[in-house]
Design a protein around this nucleic acid. Structure first.
Lengths: 145, 145
DNA sequence: ATAATAACTTGCAATTTGAAAGTAATATCA
DNA sequence: TGATATTACTTTCAAATTGCAAGTTATTAT
């Protein structure tokens, strides 16, 4: 009975999206997965915002249930699970980048790289492409390591 | 002590953004303001999701406090307040449209216009332009009425 | 004058969150 | 091999937030 099931029906696509990630933590987990290439439970817990383990577990369960994330066993260590985004999850990249760009351009103390928002706004498609490259590279290194 | 003040500091631009709109209701209010041209307290209450009046009041107060929204008195009726987005608020349009497009493309039962997501993804900048036109037109009609 | 209306506020029960501690399975170390 | 760490969670419970319903206050309409 958590989340949307008590709410009024709405066929608004924004409302649909918010049923899935309209809370603080879900988008931060997706940020770590999609933008930072994180894959382990403990890695999500390590980020600055310090998500509680019970909340993290619940959010990952929901994301998996909605087909946004998959949970695989780590072949090299049976204690660990590998979390990864599906295509449905990957397609949230532009949402995350817009949110990041907005934050970067309005937070006087942003920690985002200099000129990030401007170069993103100047050529979104180009930025997406470059981002894909960066992440592919990052995950490749992880597999190697 | 509500919202971010108890949280760990993070200089992540996404975290900054979520401090402002990382909850269900704030983005729905912004949707109504930015995408539907709503301007009155009662109009926000009328949307399908049925936000409670105390929550709505609190969210509008925060948005005003953060310079995302302004509250003006209606010159023709002293009971009413006119809510409008500032430039900072307007610049959230791409965030909302990305969220809408994602929802529309993944919700089998979306109520979004046919082909919305595709035409948005095909030419974002073009869509932003057209959207600006539509809203300008809409607000003009409201002033006339 | 009287009744509506608009924009809120208040009170309170119910839900959700967050911090801390605990558990189970596996891996590493001495 | 037995003891100690790790990893990914679960459990517990107090505290914070939410959501309804019912006010309240200041206008405006009849």
């Amino acid at each position: 009975m958590s989340h949307s099931s008590r709410r009024e029906k709405s066929n608004c696509p924004i409302s649909y999206s918010l049923d899935l990630f309209g809370d603080r933590w879900t988008l931060l987990v997706l940020r770590d997965l999609i933008l930072h290439g994180k894959t382990r439970f403990a890695e999500f817990q390590d980020s600055d915002e310090k998500i509680a383990s019970n909340i993290l577990a619940e959010r990952l369960r929901r994301l998996e249930g909605q087909g946004v994330v998959v949970r695989q066993k780590d072949p090299t260590d049976a204690r660990q699970k590998i979390y990864a985004v599906t295509d449905k999850g990957q397609s949230l990249t532009p949402v995350l980048l817009e949110i990041a760009a907005w934050g970067a351009s309005h937070d006087p103390q942003t920690g985002a790289p200099d000129g990030f928002a401007n170069s993103f706004y100047a050529d979104r498609e180009g930025y997406y492409r470059e981002h894909r490259r960066r992440i592919a590279e990052l995950l490749e290194k992880q597999d190697a390591g």
